[in-house]
Design a protein around this nucleic acid. Structure first.
Lengths: 210, 210
DNA sequence: TGCAACATCGCCCATTTGGGGTAAAATCCG
DNA sequence: CGGATTTTACCCCAAATGGGCGATGTTGCA
């Protein structure tokens, strides 16, 4: 039976909200909240010694913010799921949280019932977030593929450049003369507005040219 | 009023399912489905000339598959939202679809009512997907950050390498001698098992070292 | 306390690179 | 058909790079 109860921890500096959340959680069958913290510092110190499944984490916190907090805590407790509970909806907070290891992202105006539903959802392998947040996340995959200004051959050579190959190796692999490879690379530099292999490789990868 | 009606198109080779979907859609107030296609080839030819908001796209199609289809269609109709409707739940199909431009990802066992809800959701700026799919998507952000084998200083220099800077520039920026910068870079090469700036930059970006 | 890692600076030298040209054939596109 | 682009190839040369070697001081951890 005990396994069925989801243990929730809260990190939230607002006393009223924190207590309200704990009250709601403890007042609902299947949920239990024993540990609450007013800042990340204390959470980082004590949470690793507790038994929890899900952590509700505020972002705007004094001292270590929620994103940094998740980063640190997720490192120590990778099996625990973190749900950000915040008023911030900017991309930086959102993707910062996800990259830090958060699994859910809810705004503070989420009604209690839906919040509990989200906790249950994350516990059962879901990733709760509002429809608007979900859209942002999905859209981040669809970064419009800027069509490369490079020709077929140039792209081919750029790929090899990214593998750290030099003129000779590239020439051998493509059955070209090193001179030709050099010409292509010079043209690539012109088109990408760089003047070194490092710059070209960086731009290539960051702009998804390869 | 007309704006309130969501125009849906369907690309699905299974006759029964396609007709059933169209039937459900047309039988529900607020939804309308005029155009249905049995393969991507015909959809690519005709869809750009139609008025639609949302396209339900099967993945397993003869000829051009749904992922390729979305890639081509999204290019021509970027304002249209695509929802994949598939039995495939593998990562390749999922992320392939998202990268191709899909906004939603549902399995074929999604009940009609929820499907309609998803269409409405995507039309209103959401990104409908099952909890399991959402989790996969979110987890993809949380690719464990391999802790860099590099020292603080080395990471710093690696960043500048990625900007295409040479010894002198880096030295100037960090108030070091070019010799020192060179030494650091040599050590970076050893640690990353590369032997050129291009290789280091490539590895740095791909492995998220910077 | 001692050793490993880090950070700093230096020299030598062969090889690579980047920039400046030139040019011809192939291919594509209108 | 004719121009634009792409692909191929070459020369010269100054500058940058990579590898090998050594040296000093600091810091951190065992």
């Amino acid at each position: 039976m005990n396994q069925e109860i989801i243990h929730v921890a809260i990190v939230e500096d607002n006393d009223e909200l924190r207590q309200m959340l704990a009250y709601v959680i403890n007042g609902t069958p299947g949920f239990y909240c024993k540990h609450t913290y007013v800042d990340c510092e204390s959470a980082i110190k004590e949470l690793p010694n507790t038994y929890v499944h899900v952590v509700l984490m505020d972002i705007e916190l004094p001292g270590i913010n929620g994103i940094e907090g998740v980063k640190i805590l997720k490192e120590k407790m990778p099996q625990v799921d973190f749900i950000m509970l915040t008023i911030k909806q900017d991309d930086e907070s959102l993707f910062g949280s996800l990259c830090a290891g958060a699994t859910g992202y809810l705004t503070k105006d989420t009604p209690p019932l839906q919040l509990l539903q989200s906790v249950k959802e994350v516990y059962h392998g879901g990733a709760p977030m509002s429809t608007r947040i979900a859209r942002k996340v999905i859209d981040s995959f669809n970064i419009e593929t800027k069509k490369s200004p490079l020709s077929e051959r140039e792209s081919e050579i750029l790929k090899l450049l990214c593998d750290g190959m030099n003129y000779r190796s590239i020439a051998d692999q493509l059955f070209l003369s090193a001179h030709t490879v050099k010409t292509h690379i010079k043209n690539i530099y012109k088109k990408l507005h760089v003047n070194s292999r490092a710059g070209a490789v960086s731009k290539a990868i960051k702009d998804g040219l390869i």
